[in-house]
């Protein structure tokens, strides 16, 4: 995880764009959505909060962007205490929420223009910036269209353009590709990649492990409001101590078979039964398939299907929580 508990800094080094100290949110009714979350996001990185729906990702993002008031703990953005100085903090934050919050009373261009004005740009600068961003995000042709006329992917691009217009220190994206078609999803990944290249610090929440794997420099795996692991995606996967995952679809007592496999297969480090399948983590995949079939046969189990693949974040999540990440 990140900071040692108990350290209470008065000035945060600027390299930390986000810093939280024991951030906790208990909703009325006693639901502890986020539990003593302490993490640090460095300047220039894409940081991911990965977890299933209801893990506390959106609540965490909300506490960092002045939308969900923490029950306890502190949150800093760009060195500014988000809840002690909201007006100042909001100047440093760009947000792309999960739902379309574009101003329906305005055109595409006007959405950007007024956003610039909200953030203190002059009339002239805001006009120029709105034009430039429409160009950059391939929306110039739709400048005069009402925002309701935009497709999901276009609306999403416009929201990203709007969120980066005031040059925030940190760009938040909450489940940015949920509900987008595959093409729009790839287009958005490209955009985020470009922003990242330009040095934009990004925090995104997602429950798509592929998205987290592709985009993020570092990831916090979150479940039930707690950080279970925090590292680079490659390190998280390496932490399994395996380079291959064997998925075994078989009949019989799967729990017993799993124990046998972990015991008998060379290089196997861990096994898990989920979704009527066994996942066996193995270091070194040579000869593993026949070995698995032999062990299963000996145990009186019929193997229907065997798959080999590299460990994914899904596997990491499964090991950390015993649960699948999928919806």
């Amino acid at each position: 995880m990140s900071e040692a508990p108990g350290t209470r800094h008065t000035v945060r080094p600027v390299e930390d764009v986000i810093h939280t100290e024991h951030l906790t949110k208990v909703y009325p009714g006693g639901v502890r959505a986020v539990d003593a979350l302490s993490l640090t996001v460095h300047r220039g990185e894409i940081f991911g909060l990965l977890g299933p729906n209801g893990a506390g990702k959106t609540t965490t993002a909300g506490m960092l962007t002045n939308r969900v008031e923490p029950t306890s703990g502190r949150a800093f953005v760009g060195g500014v205490d988000v809840w002690a100085n909201p007006a100042r903090a909001k100047q440093l934050i760009g947000v792309v929420p999960q739902t379309n919050t574009l101003d329906r009373a305005l055109t595409v261009w006007e959405n950007l223009y007024f956003h610039g004005r909200f953030f203190g740009m002059s009339n002239r600068v805001s006009r120029l910036e709105a034009d430039r961003l429409l160009e950059q995000f391939h929306l110039t042709e739709r400048a005069k269209a009402p925002v309701l006329a935009l497709s999901g992917g276009m609306a999403q691009r416009l929201m990203v353009a709007r969120a980066v217009m005031h040059r925030p220190s940190i760009l938040f994206l909450d489940e940015p590709t949920a509900g987008l078609d595959p093409q729009s999803r790839l287009a958005l990944w490209d955009i985020l990649g470009e922003l990242h290249t330009d040095g934009q610090t990004i925090l995104l929440t997602t429950h798509y492990m592929e998205e987290a794997d592709q985009l993020c420099d570092r990831l916090a795996v979150i479940d039930e409001g707690r950080v279970l692991a925090l590292d680079k995606p490659a390190h998280l996967k390496a932490s399994l101590g395996a380079d291959t995952v064997v998925t075994i679809n078989a009949d019989g007592d799967l729990a017993a078979l799993r124990d046998l496999l972990v015991d008998r297969i060379d290089g196997s480090t861990y096994g898990e039964v989920a979704d009527e399948e066994i996942q066996l983590w193995v270091k070194g995949s040579n000869g593993v398939l026949p070995a698995v079939v032999n062990v299963a046969d000996a145990a009186g189990c019929t193997v229907h299907d065997l798959k080999l693949h590299e460990p994914t974040l899904e596997t990491v999540f499964l090991k950390l929580t015993g649960k699948e990440l999928r919806e």
């Binding site: 800094h9 008065t10 000035v11 945060r12 600027v14 300047r43 800093f76 760009g78 060195g79 500014v80 205490d81 002690a84 100085n85 007006a87 100042r88 100047q91 440093l92 101003d103 305005l106 007024f114 004005r117 909200f118 953030f119 203190g120 740009m121 002059s122 600068v125 910036e129 005031h166 040059r167 220190s169």
Partner: peptide, 30 residues
């Protein structure tokens, strides 16, 4: 107090720090 420390990373010059007043006026303008 952390809230009052000035972030020392660069922000774009066109984003003025007049803050709330400008934002309020812009909301009215909208």
């Amino acid at each position: 107090m952390t809230a009052t420390t000035t972030p020392s990373y660069p922000t774009m010059p066109q984003v003025q720090r007049s803050g709330s007043v400008a934002a309020f006026r812009a909301l009215l303008l909208r």
